[in-house]
Simulated assay, not measured.
Amino acid sequence: MSSSDIFIGEIIGTAVLILLGGGVVAAVTLKNSKARGAGFLAITLAWGFAVMTAVYISGPLSGAHLNPAVTLGIAIKDGVWDNFGVYLAGQLLGAMLGATLAWVAYYGQFRSHLTDPEIIGDQAEKPIEGPHNGSKAGPVLGIFATGPEIRVVWQNLATEILGTTVLVLAVLTQGLNDEGKGLSILGGLITAFVVVGIGLSLGGPTGYAINPARDLGPRIVHALLPLPNKGGSDWGYAWIPIAGPLAGGALAAGIYNLAFA
């Protein structure tokens, strides 16, 4: 795989991942969406399908990492850092593109939701539990990025580390292609089911980012988009879904090298 193939593949794959993943959260959350109120089960299943779709589309080009934690885990496992930065750049740009496309798809619903006096009033009265820094989360930030139900820094961080460790360990043990550089056809399906399982089991506390690009890219888009009454992007929390997944990816690679290599 050339560097250009990797870059393009990761942009396309991560954009599809976030378009479908962010899209289901928008569908469940926003006023005048036919899927509003479908619930957390719909979200977790759709994120799994989003992973599977993105993997199969981008796999031939880049190996479909789609996640800096996966890229880090594979690099540590093999001790090879070629194209590490190319993967991360493609993933971040793809995540930003996917979030923007999800906004386009739900443009009218965003405006309807964010100009509803009841929605805005309810958000203004809702307190944030626990210590926090930076502007608080706006009423649609959850469509773009993750946030905790209860703000306990060590718990939020531990949840992201645990979820990502399971994900990357599954990728390293079950999901890689013959070259060991990306996901195989069967690996894409296995990984999709693993993501659903993580969401159902460990998604409740933080919304299971388990992917730094998945959280950071859309959070930047939320901050930049001209959304009325959008509120803050909760930058005080943003380091957790970056540091936690990266730590989980490194931990998974360490476990793999100790137990499976």
Rank of each mutant, 00 (worst) to 15 (best):
G182P: 04
T71S: 15
V153F: 13
D178C: 07
D78A: 11
I143E: 04
P60R: 09
K126L: 14
S2W: 08
G85A: 11
P205D: 12
L61K: 00
L162P: 00
V51G: 00
A26N: 15
A250H: 06
G175F: 12
L216F: 15
T115M: 15
L227C: 10
N83W: 02
T173V: 13
S233D: 05
P60A: 07
V168A: 06
A64S: 13
G188S: 07
T159L: 11
F40V: 13
W154I: 09
I128S: 10
D215M: 13
P226E: 01
G207K: 04
T44Q: 13
S184L: 08
A42L: 11
Y107I: 11
F49E: 00
P218L: 10
G217M: 01
A102I: 02
I57Q: 02
S33T: 12
P245Y: 05
Q123V: 11
V24T: 09
I185E: 06
T29E: 14
A75G: 03
I128K: 10
V194H: 07
R111D: 12
Q123W: 15
A54R: 00
L216S: 03
K77E: 14
G197P: 03
L88E: 01
L251P: 05
A50S: 08
L114Y: 11
W235I: 05
T165E: 12
G236T: 01
A253G: 04
P127F: 08
W103L: 15
T165Y: 02
G90K: 01
W239V: 05
M1L: 13
S58R: 02
D5L: 13
V196E: 09
T44L: 09
I210H: 01
N211W: 01
I12P: 05
L216T: 06
L162M: 14
P212W: 02
Q91F: 01
A95N: 03
L246V: 10
A252N: 03
G203D: 14
G182C: 12
R214N: 08
L157M: 06
G244N: 06
V86S: 02
V28D: 15
G244H: 03
A35C: 09
S112R: 11
G130H: 10
G236Y: 04
A75W: 01
A192Q: 05
G121R: 15
R214D: 06
N83G: 06
M96S: 02
V195L: 12
G231D: 05
L45P: 00
E149D: 12
G138W: 04
D78F: 08
F260P: 09
K31V: 09
T173E: 09
L19M: 08
V28P: 10
A238D: 00
L216G: 09
N229F: 10
E10F: 06
E118N: 13
P212I: 07
N257P: 01
W47E: 03
P60S: 05
A124N: 15
D215N: 14
M96H: 00
N133C: 07
D178S: 15
T100D: 08
A223Y: 08
Q155L: 11
G48P: 00
N133A: 12
V51W: 00
T29G: 12
I11T: 03
G142E: 01
Y106L: 09
Y106Q: 11
F7R: 00
T71A: 15
W154E: 14
L224A: 13
A105C: 11
G175C: 11
Y256H: 14
L224W: 05
G23Q: 08
K34P: 04
A27S: 10
V104A: 11
I74W: 01
A247C: 14
G21H: 05
A38G: 06
